[in-house]
Each structure stands twice: as structure tokens, then as C-alpha cells.
Computed example of a mutant assay.
Amino acid sequence: MAAKSDFTIPLVISATIHIGVIVVVAMGVDFDEKPKVVPQVSAPAVQAVVVDQKQVTQYAEKLKAEKREAERKEKARQDELDRKAREAKQAREREQAKIKKLEQQRKQKEIETQNAAAAAKAAQLKQKQEKEKAAQAEAQRKKKEAERKASEEAAAKAEAKRKQEEAAAKKAADERKRKEEAERKRKAEEQARLEQERMMQEALAAEQAALSQTRNKQVVSEVQRYTSMIRATIQRNLVVDESMRGKSCRVFVRLAKDGFVTGSEILSGDPVVCRATKAAINKAGRLPVSQEADVYNKLKEINLTVQPEFN
């Protein structure tokens, strides 16, 4: 039994070292970091263990394939975001074309209104001229009638006065009607203008809302992505042992714009896990953070739940 135990321990150590090397190569870990000191095992306690090179290669290829699949999914997500942005742009262009058409219709209506007003003014001028001509003819007729019938002068004057009063009343009524019609047209045009402005404001508001909604979705997605990256960085620096299995720690982290950790505070959780989490954050020193202002504002002060991971 002692001989079997002496053989098993070196075998486990050797296999663990080989698998660790494969994982580092597949995930592209930064080799600029200072190497960790590996505990030295005395020569009599370690026996040479031969690892099947083919199995090692297959495992490394599997990890690379998983990485390529993750990159493919990320590209598909970015393509979907680009497609939605293009659709929003096309919708905005259609709305702008609609607004332009409505503006052309409004200008055409304004021209028609001006033409109608000019025609009405010309008709009034013609009517005035005809009235003046008729008045001149009437004056000539009255003159001849006065010369012919001197005895009927008083009656003719009375009749002329009556006609003048009726003409004045009719003229006043026409003027009042003209003013009322002009006021009605003015109010209708004002109402049309206000309605046009309202439609334009609604269109602009809808466009701004669509753009804001798209950007908000992008920000939420980026915040989730960087939060996962921050948690993964902490996990890589977390020293775990079996007593921490199934336990967690909730921690508050404050970050500078370059990702530098300016402060951290334990909120709740297992004391052992929390001490290890605090140490992992201090060891990392700098955590992943977005350079986009609206994404950074949601990441600069975050609460994270860290739970040790075991293979």
C-alpha cells in the first residue's frame, strides 16, 4: 500500500502540471507576469510519469475549438447589433422623407391660398369699378331726369338717398363678410401649421426614442460583458481550498477609468472566501473596464458575488 501511494502522488502532480500548461497555451495567458514558485519535490519522492502526447494534443485542440466558437458567437452578436442600427437608420430616413413631403404639401397649399386671395382682390376691384361706372351712369341719368322733370326733384333726391343708404349697408355687410372669411382662413391656416409642427415633433421624438433604446441595449450588453470579465479576473487570482466549496462573498469594488482598483469593501459572505476575494482583487490591481463613458459610469462602482470554482 505504501508503494502504491508513493507512485500515485507523483502521477497526480505531473498530470496536473501538464494540464495547467495546456490551459495556459489555449487561453492565451499573459506570460509577462512573474512566474509563480512551484514547490520543489525531492528526487526520491518523484517518479517519472509518461503522459500520452496524443491525448494532450487532443485536449489542447478541444480548448482552442471552444475559444473559436465563443469568438464566432461574439461576432454574430455584433453583426446583429449592426443590423438593428441599419434598420433604425432606414426608419429615420423614411420618416425624414415623409416630413419633407408634408412640408411640400404645406407650401403648395400656401401658394393656392395666396392665389385665391389675389383672385378675390381682383374681383373686388372689378366690382368696385363697375359700381363706380354705374354710379356715373346713374348720375348722368339723374341729371337728365332732373332737367326733364324739375317737379320730381324732391322724389328723385329721396330715392337717391335711399339707394345710397342701401348701398352703404350692403357694402358694410360685404366688408363684414369678407373680414369673417379672412379670419376663418387665417385660423384654418394657423391650425394646419400647428398640426404640422406637432407631427414633426412627434416624428423627431420617435426617432430619438428609437436611438436611445438601441444605445441602452448596447450599454447593458457591454456592462454585462465587462462584469463577467471582472469576475473572471478575480477568479483567476483567487486562491481556493476545499473548505470554501459552496460558499461565496459579496464585495463592493470602485474602479478608476483605466481599471485601477481604487477601493474595495466586503459586504457579506463567508469570512474565508471574503479574505481570499479581497486578496485576489489586491493582487489583480487593475480590472477590465470599458473606455466608453456611459458603460464606465455603470462599472466604476459595482457589487460582485464571488463564489470559488472547483474543477
Rank of each mutant, 00 (worst) to 15 (best):
N237V: 04
R198P: 00
A182T: 10
E74Q: 15
E292P: 02
R86V: 11
A122D: 15
V23K: 12
V253P: 01
N303W: 02
K157N: 11
K131C: 12
P10S: 15
A45C: 11
A256E: 03
I281A: 00
A280G: 09
R254F: 01
R72V: 10
V23H: 11
D30N: 15
R77D: 11
I9D: 14
A48K: 14
Q140F: 08
D6I: 11
R94I: 09
A169S: 08
T8V: 14
K107W: 02
V25G: 12
I22S: 04
Q208E: 10
E189I: 07
D79G: 03
A206L: 08
S243I: 02
K161V: 02
A91L: 07
A119L: 14
A156G: 07
A256S: 04
V56G: 04
K177H: 07
K109G: 13
A206P: 04
L238M: 05
E69T: 14
L63K: 10
V295M: 00
P10L: 13
S248T: 07
E180S: 10
V38L: 11
V46G: 02
V219Q: 01
A85V: 11
Q90S: 13
A156L: 13
Q58S: 05
G28W: 06
V220D: 08
R275H: 05
T227R: 03
T57M: 04
A123G: 06
Q196A: 12
R68Y: 09
L287F: 04
K133E: 13
E132L: 14
S290R: 06
K73M: 10
K62D: 12
L299N: 01
S264G: 04
Q224D: 08
E66C: 10
Q191C: 00
F310P: 00
A117T: 05
K67G: 05
P10H: 08
A276W: 00
R275D: 10
I99Q: 09
E175H: 09
